[in-house]
């Protein structure tokens, strides 16, 4: 990569033992099996099952972002946090907006 020497940064600082990764790995296993259980093991109505796995998925995403993808670690200004929040904003707008807009059938019917 062509880089200016001044903007080149050092190596990731090394922890003695990758605690974060271990904890993240265990938590993501728990969440994965949790959602599996909701689908196969629980006998809740399907609305409730869907809500449950969506919530678990949100936690799963958080774990990915904070424990594996180092959202808070940075050299220099922390641009990625702003971008992630922007991404949440867009995702919310697109999904909620589309649901709102496409509910038009009820008006027409």
């Amino acid at each position: 990569m062509a880089s200016n020497d001044t903007t080149k940064h050092g190596q990731h600082h090394q922890e003695a033992f990758p605690w974060k990764h271990i904890i993240g790995f265990l938590l993501s296993l728990v969440l994965t099996f949790g959602s599996l259980w909701f689908v196969l093991g629980s006998h809740l109505p399907s609305q409730a099952v869907i809500s449950a796995i969506v919530i678990l998925a949100v936690f799963q995403a958080m774990i990915q972002l904070f424990l594996f993808m180092h959202l808070t670690e940075t050299f220099g200004p922390n641009y990625q946090q702003f971008l992630i929040f922007f991404a949440f904003f867009i995702a919310f707008t697109v999904v909620a907006g589309s649901i709102w807009i496409m509910a038009f059938k009820s008006y027409v019917a």
Binding site: F89, I90, T93, V94, G97, W100, I101, F104, Y107, V108
Partner: peptide, 21 residues
Amino acid sequence: SILSFVVWVHHFFTMGAGVGV
């Protein structure tokens, strides 16, 4: 840039999504 993500319905007002939208 932010506003440009919240205006898209102006291309299909005539779909009839209702007054609020």
